[in-house]
Design a protein around this nucleic acid. Structure first.
Length: 426
RNA sequence: GCGGGUGUCGCCAAGCGGUCAAGGCCCCGGAUUGUGGUUCCGGUAUACGUGGGUUCGAUUCCCAUCAUCCGCCCCA
């Protein structure tokens, strides 16, 4: 009708850096993947939990860890009447807070939850990393069994199989309890002390502050040092307790029995402070530098650390954006009927009757000529068009046309419905 | 926070100092005011991210800035 170029470029407001508008075909992919994830978890008795998008900053400081990059430099923090608040940089802390606040410690165990939503991290955007991104996560509270670990891992792996993700690798590791970690620190530091000067500057710092993190150093020179047989043996068997090793052995046994392929990676430590015993990560070589689709592990102390009852837990989170880049093309959504008409009331009645039978129906709203309306029907790739004009209204019929074959016939709504009903039910 | 690439219509994309703003897709209108998907015709950028500079002259060169992409760090 009217052409409004509106070239007021200077006044255009852009979305903030590192954020995304999700629309068009993209949003259909999102919805598809989201619902598949939900169904997978629901079918195993997990229940959704929706927590606030912002929380007290202290929650993340205590929950995620003061030493992590996430709380040190990546949080969106703001103040409102003396309260320090932050946009959630990850999901677990908020869920644990809710667990404690809602008294879920008294719910029948285990408490199995999943969540889905945006997370925020102030980082330089790049492939597979944005400032607002979305995670789908799972948390299982109240059990310290290898079976619990196995179940959450299985959930992720089966979901990814259904989505046919390419080139996946599941890496798992056992990093032990807090006590094991103490043994690790002293043992590892003693082991590395003679070679300390050969390590990179970062590792020399980590040697003092957080030796565990030395293991995921990317420097080849450091990697070589950590790959020495004595070091490797120490990582795999020496520092974790018998209990932790038994736990891990049982987890591995279950995964083997289920034919879930995995790789033990003794250097996998993960960047968050709260993990204990089992940690794992699912990566794909199709992703680029940020190659982790899903990461998680056991966190047996976090609930307590956040003021709750002693409650073991295990969970993971996956990055929706990264997941989506791995998901192939989806089958095209089909439109069953497009209603071409100049009789809106009757058109809507027919549409509603068909929708009630589970069909996907669109009614023309343009009021343009039938030619234009058919054009639209073809553009939307509708299977059939139903024409309702004055003549049809008068003799109580509708005209149904198959748009692929071009065949058309007059019939009545009742006949059409009885013909279709067996084929498709809501 | 650091390093590199890119920036011409909604999308893809030519032009790389002198009537220069091709072309394709999409969209809109018409041929076709009750029947589409094919075809044909027509329409849509006061202008080349923004601001400076060099030049007689810049979309084409330089600088800055913004955005975006890729990498480092770290993570999903």
């Amino acid at each position: 009708m009217n052409s409004t170029p509106a070239k007021v470029r200077k006044d255009i407001i852009q979305r903030p850096k590192g954020t995304q508008d999700i629309c068009g075909e993209d949003v259909e992919r999102w919805e598809y993947v989201e619902s598949l994830c939900r169904l997978q978890l629901q079918s195993a008795g997990y229940q959704e939990i929706r927590t606030p998008i912002f929380e007290a900053t202290e929650l993340f400081e205590r929950g995620v860890g003061e030493g992590t990059d996430i709380v040190n430099k990546e949080m969106y923090t703001f103040e409102k009447s003396d309260r320090r608040l932050s946009l959630r940089p990850e999901g677990t802390a908020g869920v644990v807070r809710a667990f404690v606040e809602q008294g879920m410690g008294r719910w029948p165990k285990p408490v199995k939850l999943y969540y889905l939503g945006p997370m925020f991290r102030y980082e330089r955007p790049q492939a597979g990393r944005q400032r607002q991104f979305h995670q789908f996560g799972v948390e299982l509270f109240g059990l310290d069994t290898p079976a619990a670990d196995a179940e959450v891992i299985l959930m992720a792996m089966r979901m990814f199989e259904k989505l046919a993700l390419p080139n996946l690798s599941l890496q798992i590791n056992n990093i032990g309890t807090v006590e094991c970690r103490e043994r690790f620190k002293t043992g590892f530091k003693a082991l590395l002390a003679p070679q300390l000067t050969q390590l990179c500057a970062d590792c020399q710092t980590r040697y003092q502050t957080n030796p565990l993190r030395m293991l995921d150093c990317k420097q080849d020179s450091c990697k070589a040092i950590y790959a020495q047989p004595t070091v490797k043996a120490f990582l795999e068997t020496d520092f974790t307790s018998e209990d932790c090793q038994a736990h891990f052995a049982e987890l591995v046994r279950i995964l083997d029995a289920l034919k879930v392929p995995y790789q033990r990676n003794p250097y996998l430590v993960r960047g968050l402070d709260y993990y204990t015993k089992t940690v794992f990560e699912i990566t794909s070589t199709n992703l680029g530098a940020q190659n982790a689709v899903c990461g998680g592990g056991r966190y047996n102390r976090l609930v307590e650390d956040l003021g709750g009852p002693e409650t073991p837990a295990v969970g993971w989170a996956l990055g929706m954006e990264r997941l989506l880049t791995l998901v192939g093309d989806l089958p095209k959504r089909t439109l069953d009927f497009y209603i071409v008409h100049d009789q809106p009331a009757e058109a809507f009645q027919v549409a509603e009757a068909l929708r009630a039978s589970g069909y996907h129906v669109e009614v023309d709203l343009s009021g343009k000529g039938f030619g234009k309306q058919f054009e639209r029907a073809a553009k939307l790739n509708a299977r059939q068009a139903i024409t309702i004009g004055e003549a049809e209204v008068q003799n109580g019929t509708i005209r149904v046309k198959h748009l692929h074959s071009g065949e058309q016939q007059a019939t009545t709504l009742t006949d059409l419905l009885s013909q279709l009903a067996p084929a498709k039910q809501p």
